[in-house]
Design a protein around this nucleic acid. Structure first.
Lengths: 215, 215
DNA sequence: AAGCATGGATAGTGGAGCTATCCAACGCCG
DNA sequence: CGGCGTTGGATAGCTCCACTATCCATGCTT
């Protein structure tokens, strides 16, 4: 495939593909001559992932580059690699603030407690390595600061539900051959599936509201 | 409160508040004189909601305006009002496409089936009125087009989990007095809580990955 | 051999959120 | 009263970012 063919197969304009090549989101093709390059199936898959990240996931180009670098980094262990890619994705939580802030400190402590009660012993170790605690704690603190309910008891059932579903997610990933493909799929499904999950949540709230109060 | 005091209490610059007033995200204050206006608690609450929508939720200004107009519209029934506000919020799903597209049509049919099996009879009627089906169907179709699993059996447990959690959400809302406050809270918690939920999901996936494969 | 397509480089476009500046009217101080 | 800093409103501008238009040397195709 040449660049223009890659463009036709993907529906992405050549100008945009060039832009992604320049930005390092897409690896360069195999050079055929001084002015031509050859692209393969791998480029097509990667291009689709990039589009999903940027168009659907609204991920900034620089962040997408970082995520992809983790996806491609086979020097990492499987879980770390997955984690690095997932946590580089924007989480929508407010930017991590000062750890000294008492609200944030309280939220952090509560998260530890939450993980203990969930029995997520690995997550506690992972959390220490990744920005996950800070991000979660900042989000939790903000929620509370604005007067929304975000106590431990509220969070527990949500977390349990997510873990139950995570088992299914991992089962699905096991069907894939290579580790790279698994991480790629996890990232893609984070970007594409998460909106669906939230839509289902909102629809469920409406359903429940209709049951209780009519229209 | 005058504009500058509103700014101090909220931590939002006067220039930005002026911008929001201009854009209709914040109702004008009570005019004290030709060149001065008075703002109250309501303005402060609304300003915080606007900041949450725009800063955390990355909601475009025009969309925020629409969401807020639904929040304030007390001519609607409770459920419709809630639904209008929630569905005006960006869902992250790809833009709704052609209904003729066979992929989208198939996804739509499957959604109907999903709701039937869930027993969400109200949601079926609500869906007909709101862009929810189109948005969900488009997201589902995109997911499949890129080769991710998105069949009925996969979706069912997620939807059930969301409904279970929605009951808790509605319980929490019942503690609030006015309907306007309930809708406002639902919107705020959609914006602030959803990222937390997704973070929990990602953390759960990592926990499960660590359990299965180590680090 | 002629002409058009290719890939690479560079500068430019458009939109969105926010901000700097200006101005007339106001209120507080003596 | 009179002067001066402050207020709210209007306008134009800034910055960032994803993307695109244009140009050019090269080389494939017929």
């Amino acid at each position: 495939m040449r660049l223009s063919e890659l463009s036709e197969h993907s529906g992405v304009s050549t100008a945009t593909i060039k832009f992604y090549l320049r930005e390092g989101l897409l690896p360069p093709g195999r050079r055929i001559s001084a002015t031509q390059a050859e692209y393969g199936e791998h480029h097509l898959r990667r291009l689709r992932l990039v589009r999903a990240l940027i168009q659907i996931g609204k991920v900034p180009v620089a962040t997408a580059r970082e995520v992809l670098s983790h996806v491609d980094d086979d020097s990492l262990g499987r879980t770390i690699r997955l984690g690095a890619a997932l946590w580089a994705l924007p989480q929508g939580n407010p930017p991590a603030e000062d750890l000294e802030d008492p609200e944030v400190a309280a939220a952090t402590a509560e998260l530890e407690e939450l993980l203990t009660r969930l029995g997520w012993s690995n997550a506690q170790q992972i959390g220490a390595l990744s920005p996950v605690y800070r991000s979660l704690a900042a989000g939790l603190a903000t929620l509370r600061r604005l007067g929304f309910p975000g106590d431990l008891e509220t969070l527990l059932p949500y977390a349990r539900a997510m873990h139950e579903l995570a088992e299914r997610d991992l089962d699905a990933l096991e069907a894939l051959d290579s580790e790279a493909e698994q991480v790629e799929t996890a990232v893609g499904s984070a970007v594409l599936f998460e909106p669906l999950l939230l839509s289902l949540r909102r629809l469920a709230q409406e359903e429940e509201s209709a049951r209780r109060y009519g229209y």
